[in-house]
């Protein structure tokens, strides 16, 4: 009797990950463009919104594939794409995020556990939030320099600047991202039960 035995991530799993990530990215891009005109929302919210919506796709992939290395692959690909899009120097950072996120999933059958997925996804999302904030400071720097040299009012500038970089606000951003990531997994679990598991396309 020939039976199917598979352990490592195979071609089918790769296709599943790719399909889910493409949708995730497409949505993230739409959200990015919508929130871009509002820097505060973009900075503190977009990673969170992305985490919220991406959770469903991640959960579909996780429950369907249920193999270790999935979250690592997911986060690595995310990092590499960020790299090609302009944050090349952040690739090592994203690799570390991917590793930590994957470590959260140690154990048997964790990719089908709602709680473990929630933790793993939250860690990954927070990592993305911090990673994406860095380049913003960068572009802010050039503006600040230019603004200062052209005689911009120092107070206004400082206020704008602190809005972007104060540690308290960073923590707030992390909290927002974490909460949205968790809500996202809750929403995703609901869809899993209601649709995908019922239809038998995920385990």
């Amino acid at each position: 009797m020939e039976q199917t035995v598979k352990k490592k991530i195979g071609v089918r799993d790769i296709m599943t990950i790719a399909a889910m990530m493409v949708i995730n990215f497409a949505i993230a891009m739409v959200i990015g463009t919508v929130t871009l005109p509002f820097p505060a929302v973009y900075l503190y919210g977009s990673a969170g919104i992305d985490a919220f919506i991406g959770a469903t796709f991640y959960l579909v992939a996780a429950n369907r594939i249920n193999k270790h290395g999935l979250l690592f692959a997911w986060a690595t690909v995310y990092g590499l794409i960020q790299g090609v899009m302009g944050y090349m120097f952040l690739v090592p950072y994203f690799l570390i995020v991917a590793l930590i996120a994957e470590l959260c999933m140690v154990g048997k059958n964790t990719y089908r556990s709602a709680v473990r997925n929630r933790i793993g996804w939250m860690v990954n999302s927070i990592g993305n939030f911090v990673g994406c904030a860095v380049p913003l400071w960068w572009s802010w720097d050039s503006y600040q320099e230019m603004a200062a040299s052209s005689g911009f009012d120092a107070n206004t500038l400082n206020m704008q600047f602190s809005m972007v970089t104060s540690p308290a606000l960073m923590l707030l951003g992390i909290a927002i991202t974490a909460v949205l990531a968790i809500l996202g997994t809750l929403f995703g679990q609901r869809l899993l039960r209601k649709h995908f598991q019922k239809a038998g396309i995920v385990g």
């Binding site: 071609v11 790769i14 790719a18 990530m21 493409v22 692959a73 690595t76 690909v77």
Partner: peptide, 17 residues
């Protein structure tokens, strides 16, 4: 494997849109 994911994503992008 990582490379394959990237390539397949490129392949899927227009379809998904």
């Amino acid at each position: 494997r990582i490379m394959l994911v990237l390539i397949v994503m490129l392949r899927f992008a227009p379809t998904v849109l």
